[in-house]
Simulated scan of single mutants.
Amino acid sequence: MIRVLLAEDVHMVRGALVALLNLEPDIEVVVDVASGDEILPMAKEHSPDVAVIDIDLPGQDGLTAATELHEQLPTCRTLILTSLGRPGTVRRALAARVNGFMLKDAPSAKLANAIRNVASGRRVVDGELALSAWDGAECPLTNREVTILRLTSDGNDPTEIAAQLYLSTGTVRNYLTSAVSKLNARNRVDAIRIATEAGWI
């Protein structure tokens, strides 16, 4: 039996997925959560074989949670679900070393097969998503610039970001200035828009 953790913030969607997956003879959803912050603690408590994670979750985003799972609970494999196939998002997912990445509107049978493949050690990437990654532009930002731009988009100011990342406020401002420049943006808000549309944050 493949033990699954499901993370999805839309209650009706989560309920439907739990019901559909539990109809499969070899899959059991052992825990379902609504926010990214719940994933690691619940995974440690329930020891799932596969975590099926929506990429856009309140609190911690799905890719960050998947990275934490990979580092702290390597026996749990990860399958990311997304509604948007932006090239930068696909690249971020692959960089986060997730085991699978597929669109949320895929048929339930395809999701069940993806879970089986991921549980057996194979990687699963939806064909459309793979093509979008192939066609998309490379992200010009460093990992640190991406992190700081993402934290800024969440409403954190440079002082708060500096405290979170153990940097000086001036260093955070320098990273933001660099990100704005590399994206040819007018300001931080425009940089966030450009990076979000490209799927880089």
Results as ranks from 00 to 15, higher is better:
V124D: 01
V124E: 11
V124H: 08
V125P: 02
V125M: 13
V125C: 11
D126M: 04
D126S: 06
D126Q: 05
D126T: 04
D126W: 05
D126E: 06
G127L: 04
G127M: 09
E128S: 08
E128P: 02
E128W: 06
L129N: 00
A130P: 03
A130W: 06
A130C: 06
L131Y: 06
L131D: 07
L131I: 11
L131W: 07
L131T: 07
S132T: 07
S132H: 06
A133G: 11
A133E: 02
A133Q: 03
A133I: 01
A133C: 06
W134L: 14
D135E: 15
D135N: 15
G136W: 03
G136H: 05
G136K: 00
A137S: 11
A137R: 12
A137M: 12
A137N: 13
E138K: 07
E138N: 14
E138P: 15
C139W: 02
C139S: 09
C139M: 13
C139R: 00
C139N: 09
P140K: 08
P140M: 03
P140V: 05
L141F: 07
L141A: 03
L141M: 10
L141D: 04
T142N: 11
T142Y: 09
T142G: 10
T142D: 14
T142H: 10
N143Q: 12
N143A: 13
R144Q: 15
R144H: 12
E145I: 03
E145S: 12
E145D: 14
E145L: 14
I148G: 01
L149S: 02
L149G: 04
L149F: 12
R150W: 11
R150P: 00
L151F: 13
L151D: 02
T152Q: 15
T152D: 04
T152F: 13
S153C: 09
G155A: 10
N156E: 15
N156R: 14
N156P: 10
N156L: 15
N156I: 10
D157Y: 04
D157I: 00
D157V: 03
D157S: 01
P158V: 00
P158R: 00
T159P: 01
T159I: 08
T159H: 10
T159D: 13
E160Y: 03
E160R: 11
E160F: 05
E160I: 06
